[in-house]
């Protein structure tokens, strides 16, 4: 099974080398592509200098646009599955193998989840995660323990659907929509690191906006969406 690791990178000059070197040296069986999302720092330059597999977006598209670029690339190059992988070192490659197994079993989406075997710690961030989880449970009747995990793997069919459609951002509301529409989704335990360098994108104001957006989207909007027949 040909798997592509998609690494969207926005201003990750401090992290990208560490993340890609580990993949290249210790996991040569996987292929990867770095999507530089119009960074204003030297992310693209560093990737070129080291000969990394790079797609360099000329302007900043945001995470959804950058990740979709990777999926389009995976679709064109006919990969069997693709995984979203953070450029800041939060995600651990040792869990990819177990996720690929689940795709081979026939699941559409596999979430690298922090809370399959472990309990959710109590913090503001996890309160948000729990709220989204509850909202998804109300609308889909399915339990997703770690909906905000950014480590998600997509099957071949999903790659195509995500690559070519509107409103398919790599966010919990899309997962909720697909669950409701009959996609099969499972979770695999995947521990995550704290970010070592750089700042998190989520500030308090942004978190509140994000939460409001996700809840309105999951509880209300997604109920009216139609999935194109594939």
């Amino acid at each position: 099974m040909k798997c592509l690791i998609i690494i969207p990178a926005y201003n990750e000059e401090k992290n990208i080398v560490r993340v890609v070197e580990e993949l290249q040296n210790q996991y040569p069986q996987y292929e990867y592509v770095v999507i530089n999302d119009g960074s204003s720092d030297n992310t693209a330059k560093i990737c070129r200098k080291n000969g990394y597999n790079l797609i360099d977006l000329p302007v900043n598209l945001g995470l959804a646009g950058a990740f979709q670029t990777g999926l389009k690339y995976a679709y064109i190059k006919k990969y069997d599955c693709a995984i979203q992988f953070d450029a800041d070192g939060q995600h651990r490659p040792e869990f990819i193998g177990a996720m690929i197994k689940k795709i081979e079993e026939g699941y559409d989406i596999v979430i690298g989840s922090r809370f399959v075997e472990k309990k959710k710690p109590k913090s503001m961030r996890m309160l948000g995660s729990a709220l989204i989880s509850t909202a998804m449970r109300i609308t889909t009747r399915c339990k997703v323990k770690d909906p905000t995990s950014g480590m998600r793997m997509f099957s071949k069919n999903m790659i195509k659907e995500f690559a070519l459609s509107l409103n398919y951002g790599p966010e919990p509301d899309t997962i909720s929509f697909l669950l409701k529409q009959g996609a099969t989704i499972t979770e695999v335990q995947a521990d995550m690191e704290e970010r070592i360098e750089g700042e998190s994108y989520l500030t308090l104001g942004r978190s509140i906006t994000y939460m409001a957006r996700m809840l309105i989207s999951i509880l209300f909007i997604q109920n009216f969406r139609k999935r194109k027949s594939r």
Partner: peptide, 20 residues
């Protein structure tokens, strides 16, 4: 707004303001 989203003609980010 919901119709536009249903037919994949509008991004959800932009719809949320009008719904609120």
């Amino acid at each position: 707004i919901l119709r536009r989203i249903r037919h994949a003609k509008l991004q959800i980010e932009y719809a949320i303001f009008w719904l609120i």
